[in-house]
Simulated assay, not measured.
Amino acid sequence: MRLTQEQEELRSAVRSLLAQYQDKDAWSPLTTQIGAAGLAVPEKYGGAGGGARDVHVLMEELGRSLSPLPCLGSAVLTVGALLASGDNEACGRLLPGLAEGASVGTLAWAEQGSWDQEAIRAEAVPGPGGSRLITGTKEHVLDRSGVDGVDVLVVAARTARGVSLFEVAPDAAGVRREPVVTMDETRAQARWVLDGAEGRLLGVEGDGGRYLEHVRDLACTALAAEQVGAAERCLELTVEYARNRVQFGRPIGSFQAVKHRLADAYVLVESARSAALGAAFAADEDPGALPRAAAVAKSVCSEAFSAVAGETIQLHGGIGITWEHDAHRYFKRAHGAGELFGPPAHHRARLAAGLGLAAR
Rank of each mutant, 00 (worst) to 15 (best):
R64P: 03
A188G: 01
A279L: 01
V246Y: 05
W109A: 00
E8R: 13
A309L: 07
G338M: 02
G127D: 11
P42N: 12
P179G: 08
Y241H: 15
H347Q: 01
R348H: 14
V193A: 08
E236N: 14
G196D: 11
S103F: 06
A283N: 07
G208Y: 01
W109Q: 03
S254A: 12
L153G: 02
V163Y: 02
A231I: 09
G51R: 06
A102F: 03
C234P: 06
F305A: 00
V181L: 14
K44Y: 03
G206R: 15
A294T: 00
A99W: 03
A294R: 00
V269Y: 10
P29F: 00
H140W: 13
R144N: 10
V239M: 01
R93G: 11
V141E: 14
R245W: 15
Q247K: 08
R348D: 05
R261M: 03
K138R: 04
G288Y: 04
A353C: 02
A190K: 09
P170D: 10
G208D: 12
A337V: 04
G318F: 11
Y266N: 13
A295V: 04
Q33K: 14
R64M: 13
V269W: 07
Q33W: 05
L165F: 05
P344T: 12
G149P: 11
Y241K: 12
I252G: 07
A272T: 07
A190P: 04
V246T: 13
E324S: 10
Q189C: 11
Q20E: 08
A279P: 01
E198F: 14
R360Y: 07
D116W: 05
P287C: 09
A334N: 12
G249E: 08
G105M: 00
A122H: 00
A231C: 06
L351A: 01
A304K: 06
L194M: 13
A102D: 13
R350I: 13
A349H: 03
L340W: 02
L357K: 15
A84R: 07
D326L: 15
E167W: 03
P42S: 11
R261S: 05
I134A: 02
V76H: 01
A353I: 08
L3S: 11
G101I: 09
A282V: 09
G208H: 01
F255T: 06
D184M: 06
V168A: 04
A304Q: 05
V204Y: 05
A263P: 04
P251I: 04
V14R: 00
S114E: 14
Q33H: 13
S114M: 09
K44N: 12
P179V: 12
R261V: 13
A265K: 06
L262K: 04
Y330G: 01
